[in-house]
Design a protein around this nucleic acid. Structure first.
Length: 283
DNA sequence: AAGAGGTACAACCGCCATATG
DNA sequence: TCATATGGCGGTTGTACCTCT
């Protein structure tokens, strides 16, 4: 559910006054959303991971005269404004995926979110905390079989290796990932030409110029191998489509996760990464 | 119809990692 | 090399909305 940001909390500072220069907190007003969204889409969303202002969100906030911290701007964009976010509720299938991934990866929500295009870490985390964990503790309390994830209860940030090493009689540890050339699976994320993704997007959602950026993405050199890229040629209908790339190493890891490698969601054609010739991956 | 309690979710907090000067 | 700034992330909180009584 998406609430309208109409609380008195944000209303009190929106009109200016004594608190004019103080950093605003609380819910975002539609005006703030629009300002941030317009700016980012005009600059190119893809610049998110490689571009200037990404490295200086404080300056961005100042530039937009949003009395918000840079962190707050980033959070708002990542969790709410991004055009590639799915707006529909998490499906049963996605819930299964979350459970499986949480079991596999622990509470590494950002990593889990990276495997689920259109979903944010915050969304997944909230979903887990409010529903799945509750459901599981209820099941455990009623004496039923512990559902997946129960073993992770006191394991806040277990990494995949730790999980694999955990005594899990039911499921054997994932096979070791052999070293190889990086390969990718590809998924086209519709930026909002139709469908639910745009139903609640702020103004200009359909006119973003994301696709004008020739290449974007890369996750900044972290250990996670999931990457989002968008390409100039990828936007078929001009509405800001993105191509989501999943490194094959992840495919190995996730092959047992129900729903994740669903043909509906993933085009399982593989693309060999060719950094030397592909301008799309040049950054 | 109204209040209480529960639920869902947006946003903040604090810590850590990384970049920059 | 160190200090500082900034971003990223998981945990947690606050509150709007929903359901029940």
């Amino acid at each position: 559910m998406v609430r309208k940001p109409t609380s008195s909390r944000h209303g009190e500072a929106a009109g200016g006054g004594a608190a004019e220069e103080k950093e605003r907190k609380g819910l975002w007003s539609p005006e703030e959303d629009e300002r941030l969204y317009t700016h980012i889409t005009h600059r190119g969303v893809s610049t998110w991971s490689s571009v200037i202002w990404f490295l200086d969100l404080t300056r961005l906030a100042l530039h937009l005269r949003l009395r918000r911290s840079g962190k707050s701007c980033r959070l708002r964009w990542m969790n709410y404004l991004r055009p590639d976010l799915k707006k529909e509720p998490i499906s049963d299938r996605e819930a299964e995926t979350i459970i499986s991934l949480q079991k596999l990866l622990g509470n590494r929500w950002s990593v889990i979110a990276a495997k689920m295009p259109g979903r944010t870490d915050n969304e997944i985390k909230n979903y887990w905390n409010s529903r799945i964990r509750k459901r599981q503790s209820a099941a455990a309390g009623s004496g039923g079989c512990p559902t997946p994830g129960t073993v992770m209860e006191k394991e806040p940030t277990a990494n995949a290796a730790t999980v694999a090493a955990a005594p899990e009689a039911a499921s054997p540890p994932p096979p070791p990932i052999p070293a190889r050339l990086p390969m990718f699976s590809c998924q086209l994320l519709d930026g909002g030409g139709g469908g639910a993704a745009t139903t609640q997007s702020p103004p200009n959602a359909g006119s973003s110029d994301i696709s004008e950026v020739s290449a974007c993405g890369g996750n900044g050199g972290g250990e996670d191998s999931s990457r989002d890229y968008c390409f100039s040629g990828g936007d078929v209908d001009g509405d800001g489509d993105m191509v989501h790339l999943l490194a094959l190493d992840d495919l190995d890891l996730l092959v047992d996760v129900p729903g994740l490698l669903d043909v509906d969601a993933w085009d399982c054609e593989l693309y060999r990464a060719d950094y030397s010739t592909s301008s799309s991956m040049s950054n």
